[in-house]
Write a protein that binds this DNA or RNA. Structure first.
Lengths: 248, 248
DNA sequence: CAGTGGTCTAGACCACCAG
DNA sequence: TGGTGGTCTAGACCACTGA
C-alpha cells in the first residue's frame, strides 16, 4: 500500500519545487490507475515523515491536486482519490490546438489581415480610444477539409509584430501571441447561438437559417491589458464546446 | 496609501480563518475601487507586520486573490491589483440562482416529475445498469414571465427524497439537492446549438427552425457518483452563457 | 476517544528583478 | 546591491469525524 508513496523520488537539487515533484508523481500514479479512484491515502503527517518533508510541503502538494479535482479531503476522514472523470477545464487555448490534439487536421484560410482603426463597439471592447490603430484578422478554419468556423479578431496594433499570413495558416493565434512574448492571463467569454445569414451560410457551407454557435472573447495579458477581441461563429452541426466545472 | 490596509479589522475570535478575513476585505476594497486597478500593494512582510500576522498567513490571503485573478504578483516586482474585469467563472449554480441574482424574476412550470427506469443513453450517462429506477424531471423556466428554457433532468432514484412539485416551483434543483445533503463536486458540460423543432418552438414561444442553445450536463458528488444528468434547451434569442477563464 | 485535516506561527534561504 | 516574491521547515493548537 504505502510502497507506491514512499517510493516517490525526491530531488532536492532540482529547481522544480518539492511540492510540485510530489504532486506530479501522485498525478501520474492516479492517471495510470496505480492509485485507483476511491483509494485512501495515508494521512499528511505520515506521508510527510516517510518522504522526509515537512507537513506544510506535503500539504501543499496535496492541496494542488485537490484544487484540480484529483483528490478529495475531509476533516476527520482523510484523503481519497476522486472518482470523477472530469477533464481539465476549457483552457485558454486556441481552437487550432484543440483540433490538432483531437486529430481533426485543421487548416486555415486567411480572408483578411489588415490594419485599421478602432471604432464603435470594437474600440469599446478593446478599451481603446476611437481611431486607435488596430489589426483586423478574419480567418476561415477547416477541420478535415470541411469549413468549421469563421474567426474574426481585433488586436491593438503594436502589441505584436506584424502577423504574417503564412504564419497564421500554420499556427493558432494564441501560439503566435505567446511566441511574441505576450503572457495570456485571463479571458471573458460569451457563448450564444443564432441563425446564419445568407453570406455566413455560403461561407461555411450551410444553408441560410442554419443554427450557428457564436463565441465572443476578450483576452487580457498579465498586466490586465486587452490583447485581443474576437467574434467567432461555428457551424453548430459540426462543433460544440466542452467544459468542466469544479465546485469552489 | 497604507491606511486602507492597516485598517483591516481582524477578529481572532471569529471562526472565519484569518487569511479569509484579509482576502475578503481586500476583495471588497478592490471591487469598491478603493484599491484601483494597477495599484501597488505593500510587500508581504510589511503587510503581515502591520496586521500582526505571520507572513505565511498574509501570503495565503494574497494567493487566494491571485488564484481568482484579482491580484498579480511578480518576483522582484511586487503585487498589483489586476486590471481585468473578469467576473467569476461559470459556477456550479443553477439557472435559477443566476436569474434571481440578475433580477430576472424566474418562475418554473413543472411539466413532469415522475418515476421511471434508466434505459439507453440515459442509463449510460448516469452510469447505471439498464432498468435502474430513476426520476425524470421536465420543467419550463420563465424569466420576467417569458419562457426561457426547457430543462430535462434524470436523477438516480433514492439519492434524494422525493422532490415535490411545489418545491421545484420555488427553488432551483441544485439548491434542493444540496438541502438533501448532496455535495455537488464537479460537472462536465457540453454546449451546442441547433434549430428548434415544431414542438420545442411552440413550448418556448419561438418559431420552428429558430436557433436554440443546448446544454448537456453530468454532475458528480464528492464521491464521484453521478447525481444528475440534464439536457436543456434555451432560446438563443434570450439567453447566452458567460464564462471567465484564467490561465493555469 | 483517537485520528484526521484546517489553520497559524516565526523563522530561514533562495531566485528573480530593478536601479 | 537591495528588495521582492517563492519555497521550506518544525513545531503548535483547533475542529471535525467516526467508533
Amino acid at each position: 500500500m504505502s510502497s507506491s508513496v514512499s517510493s516517490i523520488p525526491i530531488d532536492r537539487t532540482s529547481p522544480v519545487p518539492l511540492y510540485f515533484q510530489i504532486a506530479q508523481h501522485l498525478e501520474r500514479a492516479i492517471e495510470s490507475g496505480e492509485l485507483a479512484p476511491g483509494a485512501q491515502l495515508e494521512n499528511e503527517v505520515h506521508l510527510a515523515a516517510q518522504l522526509g518533508l515537512s507537513r506544510p510541503t506535503m500539504r501543499r502538494a496535496m492541496q494542488y491536486l485537490v484544487d484540480r479535482g484529483l483528490l478529495v479531503r475531509k476533516r476527520g476522514i482523510g484523503t481519497q482519490v476522486a472518482q470523477s472523470k472530469v477533464k481539465r477545464p476549457l483552457e485558454l487555448s486556441s481552437l487550432w490546438d484543440d483540433l490538432v490534439s483531437s486529430g481533426q487536421q485543421p487548416t486555415t484560410e486567411v480572408i483578411a489581415n489588415e490594419s485599421s482603426s478602432a471604432v464603435g463597439e470594437v474600440a469599446h471592447k478593446l478599451t481603446l480610444p476611437e481611431g486607435t490603430p488596430i489589426v483586423v484578422l478574419e480567418r476561415l478554419r477547416y477541420a478535415r477539409g470541411e469549413p468549421l468556423a469563421r474567426l474574426r479578431n481585433y488586436l491593438p496594433a503594436g502589441l505584436v509584430p506584424a502577423l504574417t499570413t503564412g504564419a497564421l495558416q500554420q499556427q493558432g493565434l494564441y501560439k503566435l501571441l505567446r511566441a511574441s512574448g505576450v503572457t495570456l492571463h485571463a479571458a471573458a467569454q460569451t457563448i450564444g447561438a443564432r441563425a446564419a445569414t445568407q453570406a455566413e451560410a455560403r461561407l461555411l457551407g450551410e444553408t441560410k437559417g442554419a443554427a450557428l454557435l457564436t463565441m465572443e472573447r476578450i483576452t487580457y495579458d498579465d498586466r490586465g491589458q486587452v490583447v485581443e477581441y474576437g467574434t467567432h461563429i461555428y457551424r453548430a452541426s459540426r462543433y460544440f464546446f466542452e467544459l468542466s466545472l469544479l465546485a469552489h
